[in-house]
Design a binder for these strands. Structure first.
Length: 263
DNA sequence: AATATTGTTCAGCA
DNA sequence: GTGCTGAACAATAT
């Protein structure tokens, strides 16, 4: 489920488990998720180094090593880091595994191989190359910036929120939740948004991201009024008791409440 | 068997 | 150039 909040969670997970330990080996079980690098190339870059620090931008995670490498990870639809010691704790789809000298392992577990692992020149150049917008949860992304960005954009608000070159980090689920909390119909065009709508969307975006980060990926810890656990056609709206409907926007299936989101 | 799935990228069209 | 749609990628579940 890796959207920005999950990637922030992964960052904390890696920080808590995998920093400042000697890497003894990098095992590549499947190289289709390697991005712009060969298995041998990745192993060479990471030879006998340590993970020093991590950072994120949108849905991307970066791990800085003590020998100056910037390891990039994108989790696709089904990726997650798994830190384990005993062989029976090994996850089902470890496409790349970082073996540590202390006997622990960090696996890049990814059922559908839509994730990416690679070495990048620098965070900044990578973000530029990928043409990513500002991180949705960064200090720099304030209401004024959001307003300015929207003034150059057309189309439907849900599409815009999911557009990584517009804002980085919001995916299908998050955009549904933000618009549900803001009471705004997913197909509302940007031109049709009032100034107070824009402010509301910005505030709900920050709130939803924060709640999702605080929930530590446990759905049950999210507020009862969230649509997330009701994202299914015909399900009951937690706010008005009405019926949740499915809607196709930008090729993705979104869910919304026609009663609560009329704007 | 057909359809769905949290993501990205590309082609084709308006 | 921008925006929308559908397909592709891969593997699984319903």
């Amino acid at each position: 489920m890796p959207e920005l909040p999950e990637v922030v969670y992964f960052k904390k997970y890696i920080d808590a488990t995998s920093l400042h330990q000697q890497l003894s080996d990098v095992e590549i079980e499947n190289d289709t998720i390697l991005s712009g690098i060969t298995p041998a190339g990745l192993q060479k870059h990471l030879k006998e180094c340590q993970f020093q620090s991590t950072s994120t931008h949108g849905k991307y995670l970066f791990i800085r090593t003590d020998n100056g490498c910037e390891l990039m990870m994108h989790f696709g639809m089904t990726g997650e880091p798994v830190y384990y010691k005993k062989p029976d704790e090994k996850p089902g789809y470890p496409r790349v595994t970082f073996h540590f000298a202390n006997g622990y392992h960090l696996a890049f577990n990814c059922m559908r191989m839509l994730g990416e692992v690679g070495i990048v020149e620098s965070r900044e150049s990578f973000i530029r190359e990928k043409d990513l917008g500002p991180d949705a949860y960064s200090e720099a992304f304030d209401l004024t910036t959001f307003r300015e960005l929207l003034s150059d954009k057309r189309g439907m608000i849900k599409s815009a929120l999911m557009d990584q070159s517009f804002i980085a980090g919001i995916g299908n689920e998050c955009s549904d939740e933000i618009l549900y909390q803001a009471g705004i119909h997913p197909k509302t065009t940007i031109a049709g948004l009032s100034d107070s709508n824009i402010k509301l969307i910005y505030e709900k975006m920050q709130e939803v991201i924060e709640e999702k980060i605080d929930s530590n990926m446990e759905h049950r810890k999210l507020p009862d009024s969230y649509i997330l656990s009701h994202r299914e056609e015909g399900s009951e709206c937690p706010k008005c008791g009405g019926t949740i409907e499915k809607i196709k926007v930008s090729g993705r299936n979104g869910y919304y409440c026609p009663k609560c989101q009329q704007n």
